[in-house]
Computed example of a mutant assay.
Amino acid sequence: MKKNTHGDDEINMHEEMRRAFALLSGKWKLEIMWLLNQRMYRFGELRKAIPGITQHMLTAQLRELEADGLVSRTVFAEVPPRVEYQITQKARGLGPTMEALTAWWNEYGKTVPVKPASRGRKARVVKSKPK
């Protein structure tokens, strides 16, 4: 990738893009961000919405996203404690990227082979009780 120069400061766009990719790299971060782009979630809701993710991994990924300024965490002083996660204004800037990925998937997703389920926590099927 070419280097862009602005006066005395030289910007290596390859390095800058590597930094950008690192913010969302990992098995779960994009999925977490996609969900939070839709609405605010509580921790348990996120865990249920992402089949295969463990509690430990979700906690770690959310902490990294929060440290990078992409996710905000709000703790409510209630018993039991309530914690809500939402994307930040900075992360909202990724909205067009999410929309472009959705449009791409709608066009080409059916051509992508389905992969077998991966390791991790299996999705639970919750059966509702008859009323």
Rank of each mutant, 00 (worst) to 15 (best):
M1L: 09
M1S: 15
K2W: 03
K3D: 09
N4Y: 07
H6E: 12
H6Q: 13
D8T: 14
E10Q: 11
N12S: 05
E15K: 14
R18T: 11
R18N: 11
R19H: 10
R19N: 08
A22V: 06
L24T: 14
S25H: 08
K29I: 00
K29M: 01
L30Y: 10
L30C: 14
I32Q: 00
M33N: 00
W34L: 12
L35P: 00
L35D: 00
L36M: 01
N37Y: 06
M40Q: 13
M40D: 05
R42I: 10
F43K: 07
F43D: 03
E45N: 06
E45G: 09
R47I: 10
K48C: 08
K48D: 13
A49W: 00
G52F: 00
T54M: 06
Q55C: 10
M57L: 10
L58T: 04
A60W: 09
A60L: 09
L62M: 11
R63C: 07
E64G: 04
E66Q: 12
E66H: 13
A67D: 15
A67Y: 14
D68E: 15
G69F: 05
G69Y: 08
G69D: 13
V71Q: 01
S72N: 12
T74H: 15
T74C: 12
E78H: 10
E78K: 13
V79G: 06
P81M: 06
P81Y: 08
R82T: 14
V83I: 14
E84K: 06
Y85T: 01
K90H: 06
A91D: 01
R92G: 02
R92E: 11
R92Y: 04
G93E: 13
L94Q: 01
P96Q: 13
T97R: 08
L101C: 15
W104S: 08
W105G: 01
E107W: 05
E107I: 03
E107D: 14
Y108F: 14
K110M: 04
T111K: 14
P113E: 02
K115D: 03
K115N: 03
P116T: 10
R119W: 05
R121Y: 02
V125W: 05
V125C: 09
V126G: 04
S128Y: 04
K129I: 10
K129T: 10
K129M: 03
P130F: 04
